[in-house]
Design a protein around this nucleic acid. Structure first.
Length: 441
RNA sequence: GUCCCCAUCGUCUAGUGGCCCAGGACGCCGGCCCUUCAAGCCGGCAACAGGGGUUCGAAUCCCCUUGGGGACGCCA
């Protein structure tokens, strides 16, 4: 029986959590959860000049938003004595030396260090190519390659799962383990996530931070599902709930070549989760989104009935890829301030449609409020149209523009249902008014 | 420049020597449905980087070339 694994995600708090880091965190989290192990969040803030408290909080918030919970939490700046003791030991043993105030690790030469990578196999490094490196800066702080190895050993990390860009650091860390006679973890270097320009992800290439995607209306479950497929696969499957990922995830199904972050596919997944999710829950996400983006005030957002938001989700999720789009499309039901599409008005609110629209208005006015359900509305409308000798398609768009200001949207009768009787009559009358104005002009 | 990693449709990938004149998904194109836009359904286009080996047989193994990416800090 193997020991339960202990893995860590070790970001440096020098900025927002970006999607590449999120992917690394996800793989570590999945590995831990799949094997019933421990997932540790360790903040690598040994570079005090570049680390900020804001970044730490944002990274934690982003991980929580993604649903990646950690079991243990550490900050390297709080573990100073550990590094100090280890560094002094190396100095005393002559495995490190001081020069110009900094402490340097003495790389044994000649020699070779082989990284036994779980994904890549053996990778050999000639010590002739590895320069001595600083372990303790002249200001007394410790460097990454040193603190990282000491920490991983001290925390009993069993598997170091990190991005491929760290592969070349690994021999140095192995040297530290050996010099300190520490037990070594397994290593697994993940393929990089590349921008669509095929370069390392950075702020230069548009949205890269997790929260930027959130603010662009991406659902956390969509982002997680998208990220897990960057380097991991399970036959032909594309859709995975978090529980399914945990059950299915295995390092042996992780590949080794870099993956490009394809936003089109993210958008498709996002719409998938929009369509598949519980309307009430998504409705609440929409409420938060409306608030956070300042689309409506906090008071307004809180005043919107739960049922109405759920209805907005149901009506618009088949025609929206993101919450941004959905919020925009659903505006006409969340607010009575209509914005008419000029082209739609010009094309459909025309004089010859007047009489038919007016007739429909009268017909609907005769209906009881309780009859404002999509099926009943359709029945009544079709009956009226049949009597008048017209077809639905002759009036549908006119009606839609009057009700929503737009030429596209959900089914006409569903739209009427969600608007309810009073609002439908008001807007239809306003539409008639616009027709008359158009005539006069 | 040096070192390291990688190489299947535009993109994410399946494939682990014969089941592959290469499968799925996104995107794209066409059709159906239809009160609009979508969604859905059906169909289509599209790849084993090149060259050498190994083998009865290579997308799968080896070598070279080319291409891509990453690392070369008292950053992580």
């Amino acid at each position: 029986m193997k020991m339960a694994p202990r893995v860590r995600f070790a970001p440096s708090p020098t900025g927002a959590l970006h999607v590449g880091g999120a992917r690394t965190a996800l793989f570590n989290w999945l590995f831990a959860r799949h094997h019933g192990g421990t997932f540790i969040l360790r903040i690598e803030d040994t570079d005090r000049s570049r680390s900020t408290e804001e970044s730490i909080e944002e990274i934690k918030a982003a991980l929580r938003w993604l649903g990646l919970d950690w079991d243990e939490y550490y900050r390297e700046t709080e573990r100073f004595p550990l590094y100090q003791e280890a560094a002094e030991r190396l100095l005393a043993q002559g495995k490190a030396y001081e020069r110009e105030g900094a402490w340097w690790f003495r790389v044994p030469r000649p020699g070779t260090t082989v990284v036994h990578d779980l994904l890549l196999g053996d990778v050999a490094y000639d010590h002739g190519l590895i320069k001595d490196f600083v372990i303790r800066r002249s200001d007394g702080s410790f460097t990454y390659n040193f603190a990282c190895a000491v920490d991983d050993a001290d925390l009993g990390i069993t598997h170091v799962i990190r991005a491929n860009e760290h592969l070349n650091n690994t021999p140095r860390q192995i040297l530290v383990y050996q010099a300190l006679e520490l037990e070594m973890p397994e290593f697994a270097h993940l393929p990089m996530v590349l921008s669509k320009e095929r370069t390392k992800l950075s702020k230069r290439h548009g949205a890269t931070s997790v929260f930027e995607y959130r603010d662009r209306g991406i659902l956390p479950e969509a982002l997680i599902n998208f990220l897990v497929r960057l380097g991991w696969s399970c036959g032909d499957r594309e859709i995975f709930s978090k529980e399914e990922m945990v059950a299915l995830f295995d390092l042996k199904d992780v590949n080794v070549s870099a993956a490009v972050f394809d936003e089109e596919k993210l958008l498709w997944l996002n719409q998938h989760y929009l369509k598949a999710g519980d309307p009430e829950r998504l409705g609440e996400l929409l409420r938060e989104f409306l608030m956070r983006q300042g689309i409506v005030s906090e008071e307004e957002a809180e005043a919107i009935p739960k049922a109405k938001l759920a209805k907005a989700i149901e009506l618009f999720r088949e025609r929206s890829e993101t919450l941004v789009e959905l919020a925009e499309k659903a505006r006409f039901i969340l607010s009575d301030r209509l914005e008419y599409d000029p082209k739609g008005v010009e094309r459909f609110l025309t004089p010859e449609k007047g009489p038919l629209l007016e007739g429909l208005l009268e017909e609907l006015a005769g209906l009881d409020e309780s009859e404002f359900t999509a099926p009943r509305l359709e029945e009544a409308t079709r009956a009226y149209l049949a009597r008048a000798g017209h077809q639905l398609k002759e009036i549908a768009q006119t009606c839609r523009v009057a009700l929503t200001g737009k030429t596209e949207g959900p089914g006409l009768f569903e739209t009427m249902e969600v608007l309810e009787k009073a609002e439908v009559l008001t807007r239809l009358r306003r539409g008639l008014e616009l027709i008359r104005q158009g005539q006069g002009a």
